[in-house]
Design a protein around this nucleic acid. Structure first.
Lengths: 148, 148
DNA sequence: TGTAGGACTTCAAGTAACTTTAGCTTCAAG
DNA sequence: CTTGAAGCTAAAGTTACTTGAAGTCCTACA
């Protein structure tokens, strides 16, 4: 049933890299792998499943410490939904905060670039004020002629 | 005209912290500050302006190295719009990529949490499958009763 | 069966961008 | 003049890996 995966194969299947897997082993996020005669690590389907879980959590933005808790939850049979849900909800809130920050940021940058494009197209505009604008709290127009 | 700011005051006005300012000095992002008799750093309005510029760039997601270029652009009188615009545009693209990733992530997390809320509300649900779901590539429903 | 070269091993250091700690000095207010 | 906040330096810690060096193993091909 078990497929005896090498670290490279496991990495590919789970969307990581061998160094990352070794790192996870070092910090105790995954258990120490069994070894072949030559010393190479060898893995089974359960490892693939657990590592996929970990990567998925990481992609969802859970910090390693929280992933550790989630892994514990998963392994320890004590499957109360509640703990996992609390973590997921907190993470969701973080993501939503980041999202609105990034949206504001996008608007600022887009305005900067668009104003630039509109005013400077076709010429370098040696008196561009884009840099001055960045000293303001919010980005404004750019590339108008400035007083000497 | 100059207001002789302490590092703490400068930090507050520019939205940083004293250690961060010292760090910027150490890596050469801001010039070495003048000192008072006792050895305390002292700053003027120009420093406040430059530091505000730097913080603004950082908030906009420019990595330190790019901020360095932008500061150079700003200080060196050679104000061609083009270089700054290239940096801004590249950064905008990065932000937009991050935005769409985060949006997908938000959807996944929201689904996880909402499904959980719908199925588990009022009770702990000892057979929650939220954790199992996280081993899948995309989050699905959670908290249904599972086979023993 | 020999061998080339790709994959694996360990350990250490590097990365970004700060933050924290320790131990000490200086400054400002009362 | 005292006391406590703020400043100083240097070094280590943080997060989550990535990269490098130097060497070993495994596999496929001739």
């Amino acid at each position: 049933m078990d497929h005896a995966l090498s670290i490279g194969t496991l990495a590919k299947r789970s969307g990581t890299t061998p160094p990352t897997i070794r790192y996870y082993e070092e910090i105790g996020l995954v258990r120490r792998a069994a070894r072949r005669d030559g010393g190479h690590r060898t893995y089974g389907d359960a490892d693939l499943k657990r590592l996929t879980f970990i990567r998925r959590c990481r992609e969802l933005g859970f910090p390693i410490d929280q992933v550790r808790s989630l892994v514990d939850l998963l392994e320890n049979g004590d499957r109360s939904c509640l703990d996992a849900r609390v973590l997921a909800r907190r993470n969701l809130e973080d993501v939503q905060t980041k999202l609105s920050e990034l949206k504001a940021l996008e608007a600022d940058l887009a305005k900067l670039v668009n104003d630039c494009d509109a005013a400077c197209v076709g010429g370098p505009g040696p008196d561009c004020v884009i840099l001055e604008d960045l000293t303001q709290t919010r980005a404004r127009s750019c590339c108008g002629p400035t007083a000497a």
